[in-house]
Simulated scan of single mutants.
Amino acid sequence: MPIIKVIKITFDTNLKSSEIPKFRGAVVEVVGRQNVAFHNHISDSQFAYSYPVIQYKTTNGKASIVCIHDGVDEIHEFFTKNTGRVRIGSQFRPLMVESMKINSFDVGLTSTSHRYQINDWLALNEINHIKYQELEGISEKVQFLERMLIGNLLSFAKGINWTVGDPIILKITDIPSESTVKHKGIKFQSFSLSFKTNMYLPPDIGLGKGASMGWGTINKPINL
């Protein structure tokens, strides 16, 4: 099983969820657009379809960044250039570290299951949204979402340079919340749900569309 580092940095800057894209823009302005890991864009018109190793979030109303695997090394570029003040949208705000958590995780498949809660998960692109709506049975819809989630786990594994050799076992156990949200001006279905899987995952990482900007964040695993 691969051992990866994850750093969660929380700043003393108040930040609303709706301001996360502007926060990301502020960080990119500091490090420069040549650092693709900070924004996942190869060019203005070309997107890098890879798992984001630097993710922007809010933690208890404060700006935060989660760095995963290669992102741990990349974040040093920001700290060497950060002056403690950034422009978020049209406002200049202080940006000083309030807390930093550094952990190593044995990520991989285990003989036991782990239970997670994933919040505001954008599971479906436009094509899959149509397929999902065409399904009539609840069990069919759940199985469809399970396949999407397994796909997200494989994307994460690829992002940390891990080839998953054995089957991923995953079951959605509860879907307490489903809503329509806007991401980049486009409407998506957002799910907050519980699932269990034989893959051990670090807490605070994001899965699915918009993972780099706070969507699809998972909580701390619970062994079953």
Rank of each mutant, 00 (worst) to 15 (best):
M1K: 10
M1T: 10
I3A: 00
K5F: 00
T10N: 08
T10E: 13
F11E: 02
T13E: 10
K16D: 09
K22H: 15
R24A: 06
G25Y: 01
G25C: 13
V28L: 14
E29N: 14
Q34T: 07
N40P: 08
S43G: 07
A48L: 15
A48P: 01
Y49A: 14
S50D: 05
P52E: 14
P52F: 14
V53C: 11
Q55H: 14
K57N: 12
T58K: 04
T59Y: 10
N60T: 01
G61A: 02
K62E: 02
A63R: 05
H69F: 05
D70F: 04
G71Y: 04
V72C: 15
K81G: 08
R85W: 02
I88T: 04
G89Q: 08
F92V: 02
R93H: 00
L95D: 03
M96N: 11
V97C: 11
M100P: 01
K101Y: 02
N103P: 01
S113L: 15
E126V: 04
I130M: 04
K131H: 09
E140S: 15
V142H: 05
V142T: 08
F144K: 03
L145Y: 01
N152A: 11
L153E: 08
L154D: 03
L154V: 04
F156W: 08
I160H: 00
T163Q: 09
V164S: 07
V164Q: 02
G165Q: 15
I168D: 07
E178Q: 08
V181T: 15
K182M: 12
H183A: 12
G185V: 11
G185H: 12
I186S: 08
K187E: 15
K187C: 05
F195I: 03
F195E: 03
F195V: 00
K196L: 07
T197Y: 00
N198Q: 07
P202I: 10
P202L: 12
P203W: 07
I205A: 07
G206H: 10
K209V: 06
A211W: 07
S212R: 10
G214I: 00
W215F: 14
G216Y: 05
T217H: 01
N219Y: 06
K220N: 13
N223M: 12
